[in-house]
Write a protein that binds this DNA or RNA. Structure first.
Length: 588
RNA sequence: GCGCCGGUAGCUCAGCUGGAUAGAGCACCAGACUUCGAAUCUGGGGGUCAGGGGUUCAAAUCCUCUCCGGCGCACCA
């Protein structure tokens, strides 16, 4: 049950009833129904009169009075005021919040589930790290963000596919293959000495060399490179991807589809060639020259005729090359074919999650998606900004050159999956993030992960204690919820209790807003606020014993308050699940 | 030089796609444990929303210019 959706309906129908006297038909899209920032203004406010005043040919306040009069007669609306420049403020009958709480408890983990997605397929592509080594911390944020966003969209009613694009076709995987081949010779007993510059030095390739040796014996080493390289490459990529999947599993991140870049051009058909041909057919490709980039001079600039995509016709700054000077496709060309494949597989809505260093790539990719889908497809690119890794306020030094970068696994092993996930989401995706290894394992309010989880554990702790005073309270969670859904909620009259009920009721609205904005961090912040309000109410019971959740000689109010706790626990558990973070029963 | 992302309290950050008097945590000051978990809570001080101009009933939010920080800038992925 979404209270704001309910009132939204009332507002729209009230406006529709008045519309015959308007000068122009009202544009309902701009009407916003939301909780006012200042609670003294009531429970729900709408700007309807202000945005429709022109259409109505009335002054905002005059129109507001008329809408307010119509709303005043609707069920559940206890009071309507016109305020300021023409806000309509509504105070709802407490029965509305009670009904919302009952519905939340009864729905359990489905409370907040939405149908705004209407089953539309959405493709969320995230991580897509090169299969050339283990994942490092830099990959964490994109992985967690993409995963949480996918959860959120699924909860909001979209049909979500989680996808990983394997970059197994470029020069980098050839380097990987040569590095693995060296390890293969090593595995056969050869002294290889130090790893030469330009090859990957990491010892995670040792097992690949051993595997190649075990499978091929000495045979591979006797062949020319063009024969052994594909073999080494395939095996290396395979083993790297297995490693990456394990790393992701440690973070509780899983994908539905792993899409190989190589598969676009291998086998019977060349999807990249086909895509380019189609674009050429549509007039989006030409042979031409590109001006050298301004600013920093490019040393080896080679002015030549090349195959260019007219990205500028779709909003990009310059046209983009599709072929390298050696005649092979650019990465961009493959990427166009890849996104076309997404569209051909039924995804009009696509979301890519990229690191900040790829920000300059957004426009051309969106341009390409428009071109290749004839404007039917929509690509949203979410950029996750840099993560600064700290320990007790001091930067953790990492040098990629020396090979001592911090791996994803190391961080997860040190602070735990929950802490990593929550902290990665407790910040807007496009703002940089400080991740302090010391702070995230602290058990204090300083640490939001703990604070929210503790809120959940504390709620469960109340239930454990309540069973002594209230033997009829079922231990089984589902039975408990069913039992509490029948609680005498009219006993909840304290302002703060009412306020908690309202926040629990706001959950569905939060889910929808976060899903539509593609912003899972809003969920994290909502949970933090809910936990905070719950902790506050819990502590009030210390000064004011009559406000405790468990009142020994009044089982009725105890049941009512337990229902409130049930609502809190339900939303915390549900929200934490969206973030992929555990909701512990206790934290001792 | 161009593009993208940031700039909000001393510090770290929210601000619900334009709403009413801009909010939280930390830090600082003053308080609350014979108690449902004090791993918590209550109160207080603290603001030129980087700066100028514009759009309108209304701007931290949209447009524009400037300043500062990060990232990127044929043929890498």
């Amino acid at each position: 049950m979404n209270v704001f959706e309910l009132i939204n309906g009332h507002v729209r129908s009230a406006v529709a009833d008045l519309a015959s006297s308007f000068k122009a038909p009202p544009v309902l899209d701009r009407i916003v129904v939301e909780p006012p920032r200042d609670p003294t203004h009531g429970d729900v406010a709408t700007n309807a009169a202000m945005v429709l005043a022109k259409d109505a040919g009335m002054k905002p306040r005059e129109l507001a009075e008329k809408i307010a009069a119509a709303l005043g007669t609707r069920a559940g609306i206890a009071r309507v005021d016109v305020a300021g420049p023409g806000f309509i403020n509504m105070t709802l009958d407490a029965s509305v919040w009670r009904a919302a709480l009952v519905s939340a408890i009864a729905a359990g983990r489905d409370h907040g589930r939405s149908r705004i997605g209407a089953g539309a397929p959405v493709n969320v592509e995230y991580v897509s790290a090169n299969p050339t080594g283990p994942m490092h911390v830099g990959h964490c944020r994109g992985a967690v963000f993409g995963d949480a966003l996918a959860n959120l969209l699924a909860f909001a009613g979209y049909r979500v596919t989680r996808e990983y694009y394997i970059n197994d076709a470029g020069a980098q995987v050839d380097v990987l293959a040569r590095s693995a081949f060296l390890r293969y010779r090593e595995a056969l007993g050869e002294a290889i000495g130090p790893i030469p510059d330009g090859l990957y030095p990491g010892d995670y390739l040792v097992p690949v060399g051993k595997a190649l040796a075990a499978e091929h014996g000495a045979a591979l080493g006797e062949k020319p490179e063009r024969e052994w390289l594909p073999v080494a490459r395939t095996r290396a990529v395979e083993m790297m991807m297995a490693m990456i999947r394990e790393d992701l599993a440690a973070l509780n991140v899983r994908h539905d589809v792993f899409f190989s870049e190589r598969s676009l051009t291998e086998g019977g058909s060349d999807a990249v060639a086909a895509t380019i041909a189609a674009l050429r057919e549509a007039g989006h490709i030409y042979e031409g020259r590109l001006p050298p980039p301004k600013g920093a001079p490019v040393e080896d600039w080679e002015d030549r005729e090349q195959t260019l995509f007219r990205a500028t016709e779709f909003g990009d700054d310059v046209d983009r090359p599709l072929m390298k000077s050696d005649g092979s496709y650019t990465y961009f060309a493959s990427d166009i074919a890849y996104h076309k494949s997404k569209f051909d597989r039924g995804f009009r809505d696509m979301i890519d999650v990229w690191g900040a260093d790829h920000g300059g790539y957004i426009k051309r990719m969106q341009a390409a998606v428009r071109a290749v889908t004839a404007g039917q497809g929509d690509l949203d690119v979410k950029i996750v900004q840099l993560v600064k890794l700290l320990r007790g306020g001091e930067p953790v030094k990492m040098s990629k050159r020396a090979g001592d970068f911090v791996t994803l696994r190391e961080v997860v092993d040190e602070v735990g999956r929950d802490a990593v996930r929550f902290m990665m989401l407790f910040r807007k995706n496009d703002a940089t993030l400080d991740f302090d290894l010391a702070k995230v394992i602290e058990q204090s309010r300083d640490n939001p992960v703990f604070y929210v989880q503790y809120g959940h554990a504390r709620g469960e702790s109340v239930f454990r204690n309540a069973r002594e005073a209230l033997p009829s309270l079922p231990a089984d969670p589902a039975a408990r919820a069913a039992f509490l859904a029948g609680a005498p909620l009219e006993r909840l009259v304290d302002e703060a209790e009412l306020s908690l009920m309202k926040r629990i009721s706001a959950w569905p609205r939060q889910v929808e807003a976060a899903a539509q904005a593609h912003e899972p961090h809003r969920i994290a912040f909502f949970l933090y606020d809910l936990a905070s309000e719950f902790h506050a109410q819990w502590t009030r019971g210390k000064d004011l014993p009559h406000l405790r959740f468990i009142i020994l000689d009044d089982p009725q109010i105890t049941v009512a308050r337990l229902a409130l706790v049930q609502g809190v626990v339900t939303v915390l558990a549900s929200g934490l699940a969206l973030l992929g973070v555990g909701a512990p029963e206790e934290m001792r």
